[in-house]
Design a protein around this nucleic acid. Sequence first.
DNA 1: GCCTAGGTCCCGTTA
DNA 2: TAACGGGGCCTAGGC
Lengths: 303, 303
Amino acid sequence: MANGAQRSEWTRAVRGFHAGARSDFGSCSFAVVVASSVNGAGGAVPTVLLLCSQGVPNSVIESGERARVQPETTEASRLVETAIQEGLLATLFGRCRVEYEGRAASTLKEGERLVVLKPDGTALVHSDEGQKPVNWQPPGCTHEVQTDGDSLVVRSRRETPEEVLLVEFESVDHVAIFDVTDDHDLSLTGTEEDLRDRILEDPSILEPGFEPRATERQTPAGAVDIYGVDGDGNAVVVELKRRRVGPDAVSQLNRYVESLERDLHAETTVRGFLVAPSVTERASRLLGERGLEFVSLAPSPDT
Amino acid sequence: MANGAQRSEWTRAVRGFHAGARSDFGSCSFAVVVASSVNGAGGAVPTVLLLCSQGVPNSVIESGERARVQPETTEASRLVETAIQEGLLATLFGRCRVEYEGRAASTLKEGERLVVLKPDGTALVHSDEGQKPVNWQPPGCTHEVQTDGDSLVVRSRRETPEEVLLVEFESVDHVAIFDVTDDHDLSLTGTEEDLRDRILEDPSILEPGFEPRATERQTPAGAVDIYGVDGDGNAVVVELKRRRVGPDAVSQLNRYVESLERDLHAETTVRGFLVAPSVTERASRLLGERGLEFVSLAPSPDT
DNA sequence: GCCTAGGTCCCGTTA
DNA sequence: TAACGGGGCCTAGGC
């Protein structure tokens, strides 16, 4: 721990800062708390806890006044607790270990990570690498935060299936909570649906004479992307893929074709088309063995 | 914008705070910059830019002194730029719109989001919901940040395939950069590999008399999880799944079996086993049609 | 709730 | 580099 005199000076500075913030912006609230914690090597590690932006209850702001013992953990916990209660998003950064148990089980030793807790019950633990979180909890979980001695512990649970994520912070360098509003109206192009629309708009792209009859037609083996007939009246099954395909897509198409062959009258010929930008060698060979056909087409015309 | 007198008061408070931080902790550096920006409704929105924790170059700290015009955007940009240059992780929170173009293309209208830029070239844009980022860029990308008038723009590119992510912040409420060290030694149990080990340890679990001969044995159709022989000398192909399986797993097993039937002598019988905790109804029917067998087994003994 | 299949899937491994 | 298959996959859409 830093010596008392120095921390007291810090706290004063912070309080002044904080007080100014509230008088300045009226309805908007800020609190910044600075304290030191002891890291594994016994050295003092500066810790900043930041509460910022709009719509944060005033009660939280006042809490800074009461930071006396282990202020960093207490304050961090309070902020995260507020986020959970009020439906805010919380981010924590610090040195932590992580345990997970549920569909599988994992242990992650101490390291510095960014933890994100979302109001929808999502939890993310991100290391310095990778697009995927090293540990996580899907939406719908219940988050809890508590202090355990010097450490801050975040727990996230769900049922069906029963799963628990535990993040134990040895030190917390940074906490921030945000009142997030997002209409999240993502518009995406280049999907399989775009590929489908291209064919429905001009079925001759697949083959001259092709006539689509249904999309998502049900068979005992599952739903067919496009079902129709060719110029000779044969049944046609089309499986669409937005990107280069491997053997799995061929098997999928084959399942549908075989299922329809049993379902329809015995004399009906069922042709299977795989539509994708390209195929791998092994998939191409499988197509040949199964008597299936391939049409090269991408979701976007220019690709 | 807030009036000049008020911002000046803020800036003074911040500087004092900042100076104290440096003298207190020596090698560790902090900078906190507070400023106001104008939101869409024309109101003043408080903005906090936070630079915290270890190993941050001093030059960045000094930059607070030069915050004169559009301090929020300039400082935010500087902090993110530092993170990119120095291999730090950066988080930004604010109101932004997002565009992506690459394997697909997307547009996301204005909303409040958390953006994470990792030193390995990963970019994440998280809204208030969902485990998956609403937009992202995988590792290996090159991040750039720049100011464009009042807005801060983050760009992330990669080649092979050519992909660009653009995040344009109308306002930035919070920026933090972190020097992350993580040995990321995740230990995971309950995987397909555990399931494999259970069978290799006691092959009779699959069937009395079963003798494993190889794992990942190559066939023209791909690698077989476990290859072996039964008590009668028939070839055995085992496909493992850590969880309840659907039709795709049956097709996969079927590909391997058919491939081996062609590869081996004609008179050799090839039996196919699907090992998983359970199967869906449709998958079960497919197994029957294909003459394949099912053994119920989970990665963990107690499941 | 389960089932089915898509995904800018990501990710590791191997040829 | 591409290909192949696993994943605590996640997610949307049906039933």
